[in-house]
């Protein structure tokens, strides 16, 4: 187990290096001129521009710039924006909101998705199953920003007028957990539909396995057969999906945060794009790549817990 963990961590290094290089390349080697962006519509003052270029090494060759950035990152320095703020500070300010939002979304996705999937799989072809199939198809097709606005209107405004004030229209930190409920649900919606469908197919397939038939033949109660025998094995593809999804939830939060005015990573990115602050973009995406790699590692370790046939030496 320990050796496997070390091997996996070593394997993650080239992926992380490659991803940061790719992101850095796409942002800076192909991007616009950040100094001009800082000046906005006016032409940048040549003296100031030259000073900034000198200070931030903007005239160095691309590979040298990347090397400087990388050595900085390894020392915990994500660089600073052209107006002098530390990228790490910006990220640590915004990150908690997005993490909270992603956790709420993840919990909704896992709980509701798996439950709905189990119910559909056990009533295959019946009304409930058809309902689940149809509603998931709809949720997958309707873009998040549309679901967001419609639910914001229905639950945030109309329901409040009826006297139920559960879902604030706009994010307010003092609302605590309640503030994350509706945004979290909207962020989770698409993945929720995928998890439901995946659980349904996976459980339906496992229910046909020989060991499940044996368990039924032994006279075990149905609940025990489904939960302890079939579901445990059927969970493997679902856990894989959930793990890969954690990263995309944080990335996809851009739109949800935009709808509900949450000042998380999404707001930071939108601002960085407007001001052409490449360092912030690179920092955020690098962080999300790290989250993705870590989540994948945890998923691989979970396989061994779920399926005793899988062992890591």
């Amino acid at each position: 187990m320990g050796r496997y963990l070390i091997r996996r961590l070593i394997q993650a290094i080239p992926v992380l290096l490659g991803a940061t290089f790719l992101i850095y390349f796409l942002t800076f080697a192909l991007g616009g001129d950040p100094v001009q962006a800082l000046a906005g519509e006016k032409k940048a003052d040549p003296l100031v521009a030259a000073m900034l270029r000198e200070k931030y090494h903007l005239d160095d060759p691309f590979l040298v710039q990347y090397w400087n950035y990388l050595t900085g990152v390894l020392q915990g320095n994500l660089g600073e924006t052209l107006n002098g703020r530390q990228v790490l500070d910006l990220i640590t300010e915004a990150f908690p909101y997005t993490v909270n939002l992603a956790i709420v979304a993840f919990a909704i996705e896992a709980l509701v998705g798996v439950t709905a999937g189990i119910m559909a799989a056990l009533r295959r072809g019946k009304f409930l199953d058809q309902l689940v199939l149809l509603s998931t198809l709809l949720v997958i097709s309707i873009p998040v920003f549309v679901t967001g606005f419609v639910l914001q209107l229905l639950l945030g405004v109309e329901l409040k007028e009826l006297g139920f004030d559960f879902f604030p229209v706009s994010f307010n930190e003092s609302d605590g957990f309640k503030a994350y409920l509706l945004p979290g649900f909207i962020l989770a919606s698409t993945s929720l539909a995928y998890v439901t469908r995946l659980t349904r197919t996976s459980l339906m397939e496992t229910m046909r396995a020989d060991y499940v038939r044996t368990a039924v033949a032994k006279g075990l109660p149905r609940r025990r057969v489904v939960v302890n025998h079939a579901l445990r094995n059927a969970l493997i593809p679902i856990v894989t999906f959930l793990g890969a999804d954690l990263g995309s939830l944080m990335g996809g939060a851009v739109i949800t945060e935009n709808i509900f005015n949450i000042n998380g990573i999404g707001g930071l990115i939108a601002q960085a794009i407007r001001l052409d602050q490449g360092t912030v973009l690179v920092g955020v995406v690098t962080l999300l790549v790290l989250v993705y790699l870590l989540a994948n590692l945890i998923v691989d370790l979970l396989y061994a817990v779920l399926d005793p046939r899988i062992r890591y030496a």
Binding site: T27, G247, S248, G252, D276, V282
Partner: peptide
């Protein structure tokens, strides 16, 4: 490892 939407935003900016 790069999320689709974020990666898209990153490249499209500017």
């Amino acid at each position: 490892a790069i999320p689709l939407l974020l990666g898209g935003m990153l490249i499209m900016s500017g």
